[in-house]
Computed example of a mutant assay.
Amino acid sequence: MRIDRFFTVHCVSPIRKMLPQRGGLQIPILMYHSISDYPDNHLHPYYQTVTTPKCFEQQMHFLSRSGYQVLTLSEAVKLLLSEASLSNSAIQKNSPSHKSFDCQRPMAVITFDDGLRDFYTNAFPILDKFGFKATVFVVSGLIDKTFLTGHDCLRSQEIKELASKGIEFGSHTVNHPQLKELSRNEIIYELGKSKQMIESITECSAPLFSYPYRFPEDASIFTKTLSMLLIDQGYSAGVTTIIGLANTKNNPLFLKRLPINNCDDSQFFRAKLEGNYDWLHTVQLTYKKFRAIFSVQKRSVVNKAL
Rank of each mutant, 00 (worst) to 15 (best):
Tyr213Gln: 04
Leu71Gly: 06
Ala271Glu: 06
Lys93Ile: 08
Gln58Ala: 15
Ala84Ile: 04
Asp152Phe: 08
Met60Asp: 00
Gly131Asn: 09
Ser64Asn: 12
Ala237Phe: 13
Met18Ile: 07
Gly23Tyr: 02
Gly234Ser: 03
Ile188Leu: 10
Leu154Pro: 06
Asp102Gln: 07
Thr240Trp: 12
Cys55Leu: 13
Arg291Val: 11
Val138Ala: 15
Leu191Gln: 00
Asn122Asp: 11
Ile159Asn: 02
Gln178Asp: 08
His98Met: 14
Leu182Ala: 04
Arg117Val: 07
Ile243Pro: 00
Thr248Gln: 05
Phe101Ser: 06
Asp265Val: 03
Gly244His: 02
Arg105Gly: 00
Arg5Glu: 10
Asn94Leu: 15
Thr146Ile: 15
Ile187Gly: 02
Ser200Ile: 08
Lys93Glu: 10
Phe101His: 11
Met60Phe: 05
Leu162Gly: 04
Leu25Val: 07
Ser227Leu: 06
Glu186Asn: 08
Tyr235Pro: 01
Lys289Glu: 11
Ser97Lys: 10
Ile126Asp: 02
Thr72Trp: 09
Gln297Ala: 15
Ile35Asn: 00
Thr49Arg: 05
Thr248Lys: 02
Arg257Thr: 15
Ala292Met: 09
Ala246Cys: 06
Thr241Ala: 12
Phe215Cys: 10
Asp128Leu: 14
Asp102Lys: 05
Gly23Ile: 08
Trp279Arg: 05
Pro96Ile: 03
Pro14Phe: 01
Leu43Val: 11
Gly275Glu: 05
Thr52Trp: 06
Ser236Met: 11
Pro14Ser: 01
Lys99Phe: 06
Ser97Gly: 00
Lys99Asn: 05
Gln69Tyr: 14
Met18Leu: 15
Asn262His: 12
Gln104Phe: 08
Ala123Tyr: 07
Asn251Gln: 03
Lys17Met: 12
Phe290Leu: 13
Lys195Phe: 10
Thr240Ile: 13
Glu168Gln: 12
Ser140Leu: 09
Asn122Cys: 15
Lys256Met: 07
Cys204Tyr: 08
Thr240Leu: 10
Phe137Asp: 02
Ser205Val: 13
Thr72Met: 05
Asp114Gly: 07
Asn175Ser: 15
Gln69Ala: 12
Asp232Val: 04
Tyr235Asn: 00
Thr248Trp: 01
Leu306Asp: 00
Asn262Trp: 07
Gly192Leu: 02
Glu57Thr: 01
Thr286Gly: 13
Thr241Asp: 04
Asn276Glu: 07
Phe268Trp: 13
Ile91Asp: 05
Pro28Gly: 10
Ile231Cys: 07
Tyr32Thr: 11
Lys298Val: 04
Ser66Ile: 03
Thr146Cys: 11
Glu83Ala: 15
Glu158Phe: 05
